[in-house]
Structure formats: C-alpha cells, structure tokens
Design a protein around this nucleic acid. Structure first.
Lengths: 221, 221
DNA sequence: TACTTATTGTGAAATATTTCACAGCGTTAC
DNA sequence: GTAACGCTGTGAAATATTTCACAATAAGTA
C-alpha cells in the first residue's frame, strides 16, 4: 500500500484542468484523445501531459490515445473523495453569496453543506439551499456533517480567528479568499485566492506584453 | 534603457504578496524589516526574499535591513501603472457584483470604471458606483476610458466570445473567472481564476495532509 | 580605533520541473 | 504476413527555481 508517489501542486492543478477539458470533450461526443491534442487545449506540451498522467495510473493505447471517459474516471479516482464532499463556507457577504450560487447550480462534486455568518439577521436563512448558522455553532455543525474542507470569505480582520476556529473544529483544507496570510497548524492545507493580487499580476504582465508587442511590430518592419 | 530583466510569474506573485504584507506592517508603525522576518510572514525562505528583491532594484542596508516605506515604493514602481488603472468588468451576476463591491470599497490601485452585462434590466444601473453598459458598447467605452485590463465573470458558454471581443477592443490583460480555457492572440496576457479547480486542489491536499498527519501520530509513538 | 555581530547581495550548488528523444507497441495498408 | 506509421511511457538532458554559503558591510561596543 503506497498509493501516493508525491504529486506536486503544479501537477495536481494541471490534472484538474485536464479533467475539466475532458469533460467538455465528452459532452461533445469525443471518445478518445491524444496527448498532443490535450496539450493544445491546456496550452502545455504533449510530453508534459504524458508525464502528468504517469501519476494517475491510467495508461493510454499507442494507437487510440486515451479513452476520454476512462481517463476522466481515473482522474476522478485520484482527485475526488469517494463520496461527494461537503464543504463549509464562513462569511455570507457579497462574495459568500456568489460562492453559494456558484457551487449550488452545477452538479458539482462539492456541496456547500453549511454556511456561517456573524450577522444575526442572516442566521437561520437558507441561501441557495444552504443553511446559515451562527459562528458559535461552527464546531458542532462541522462535526455533525463530517465536513473537512472550508472556504473563508470574511473580512480581512476576521480571517485569522475564523481560520483558527476552523482548524480547531477539525478542518484539514481551507480555501481563503480574505487578503491576509494566516498561520495554520501542521496537517492543515491552506490555499489563498486573493483577487486583487491576481489582478495586480495581470496588470503587470499586460504592461510587459504591451511593450513587447510594440517591439514586435517595430521589428516586423 | 533595459528595464525588464525578465521576472518570472512566480516572482511577481511573491512581490505582490510582499507588498501587501509590508503595507500591513507600515500601518502598524513598523519602519524597517529584515529578509528573514518578511520570509516568515510570507512563509518562504530569507534567501528567496532577497533573491526576489534583486529584481526590484532596491537595496537594503546590512545593518537596518529594508526600509518598509521605501521598499513598498520600489515594489509599487515596478508593479503598478503610473496612474491609477481603470479596469473593466464583463458580467454583473452574483460574482460580478461581489467583484464590484470588493474593488469599490478599498482604496485600491484599481478602479472598475465600466461594467457590461447583456441583461437589459441591468444596463443603465450603477452598481457600487460603477456604470453598467450593454455589450454593444464594449469597444467604445473601453476606448474612451483608456482601459487595458478586464475581468470576465460571465457564464462559461459566453466566455470565449467575451474574451474575443475584449481582445478586439484593445484589452491586453484579462482575469477570467469563467471555467473555460479560451484562446487569446499574441500580446494579450490571460490568467484563469477558477474557484472550483482551486477547491479541488484544496480537497486533494487536505486528504493527503490528513493521511500524513495520521502517519505522523503513528510515528510519534 | 579596533573588534564583534547580524545582515545583505550574489555566485555556485542543489533541487524541482519541463522537454527531448527514442524503444516498444497496436493499428492499418498492402 | 509484414512493413510503415504514429502514438505512448519513460530515462536522460535541459532548464527553471530555490537554497546554500560566504565576502562585503554597516552599526554597536569598548
């Protein structure tokens, strides 16, 4: 029993992307695909696709490439929890509501089973079919529902306390939308999704793109 | 004149993080900081911080480390547009509104100067102080306002057309929230911010964390 | 002044990631 | 049947990123 050959974060990110692309393909009726085709869709190289897929334990055929359906299955066995996974959300502001509607619609692997907000006016409501609890019930509800993963969409000032409480309640994975870095104990994985930092990155590379494309046109003469 | 020594995406991402952390520090009255302290906040290594800062062209003092204020200035000269930059938003659904409120409040470098939505019921409104136009006015408004960067928060099915139209209108940087990969011409930088893929990644590593921490406790005996 | 200490900036080593390149193998064509 | 083709899986090379390690340096101390 040695299932994990240590898959890097980058590889996991690409595997998730491959699965999404394959899903689109499958719904278009596509039955099989070659590494170079998948690479073109994912904007990578064929060698990288094959290398990534080595981690999945699914082998394609030299003649027909990969079966779209089987590969999705293999990716899902690796990436997904056996059962559909319940997720908690803390913070039912603008962003929190957007997240609830985002994950409510789609037939997603993930269902937001509990939301928490400090505003007493929101407690007791059901937003997009998800019940909203007060923050005092965090540990109890997470325990009862068997939730292991949480999203944090609270104001920056409350993020540290929120994350701490989630860790105490037994959460092992956190997706943090608040623009602050917070400490988590060993054994908890946290990822930051900071929209304004993403925007900064885009603006920076947009500028350098602009410069180089000007240079290109100059050179093209 | 040779301003760009080619800074990797990873480095830019960390520089943006450093700037945020330094901003917090400055507001707490901190005047100077050492590389290992900044590294602790950013959860990196001191050597990495120093290596990253080499790209910025600001030098610290061996005795006092880096001046928080000056370093923020140097980072901003590198990362920011000279003027406050206008951004466009396409798609004023749940997520779009969350983005508008997110970027409206804070005294951000970026201001969302124009939003677009196909729903005639939304056109003409001002959401969080941002005017909403119909999609037919995309090129005109972007041109008039001098906008170079856009955020896309439309349904998956409309993303390809939206991105195409933005590129035609002269946008050079796109932050795409729609869960589809789209083609952009040379000279346009696009970044994908796909929440459900982020959540998948978190859930995956949460599981492996759980496993290794179990192993740890077993080993700790 | 001279000595000690803690830090920076950076060449060089170590590590991580990506790409190359080719053996091996189904499939197809003749 | 067998030759030719185009693909996969993967060792090895190339490249990118991170860390190490140390000379250079400014401040504090006596």
């Amino acid at each position: 029993m040695f299932s994990l050959p240590v898959i890097s974060e980058k590889t996991v990110a690409r595997l998730a992307l491959y699965r999404r692309l394959l899903g689109d393909l499958l719904s278009q009726g596509r039955r099989s695909i070659y590494s170079h085709e998948l690479a073109a869709l994912a904007k990578g190289s064929a060698a990288q696709v094959r290398r990534d897929l080595m981690a999945v334990g699914y082998e394609g055929s030299p003649a027909r490439g990969y079966s779209v359906e089987d590969l999705i299955g293999a990716l899902s066995r690796l990436l997904d929890h056996p059962a559909t996974q319940k997720v908690a959300l803390v913070g039912v502001g603008n962003l929190g509501r957007a997240l609830l509607s985002y994950f409510a619609g789609r037939g997603s692997q993930y269902s937001v089973a509990a939301a928490f907000d400090a505003d007493p006016g929101k407690v007791g409501l059901a937003v997009n079919g998800c019940p909203v609890y007060g923050p005092d019930r965090l540990a109890e509800v997470i325990e009862r529902e068997g939730i292991e993963v949480a999203m944090v969409a609270v104001p920056a000032g409350e993020a540290a306390r929120t994350v701490h409480d989630l860790c105490t309640a037994g959460i092992t994975g956190i997706l943090n939308f608040a623009p602050v870095r917070v400490w988590v104990p060993e054994g908890v994985y946290i990822e930051y999704l900071d929209m304004s930092m993403s925007l900064e990155r885009v603006a920076f590379f947009a500028r350098s793109k602009r410069r180089t494309s000007q240079q290109d046109s100059a050179l093209a003469k």
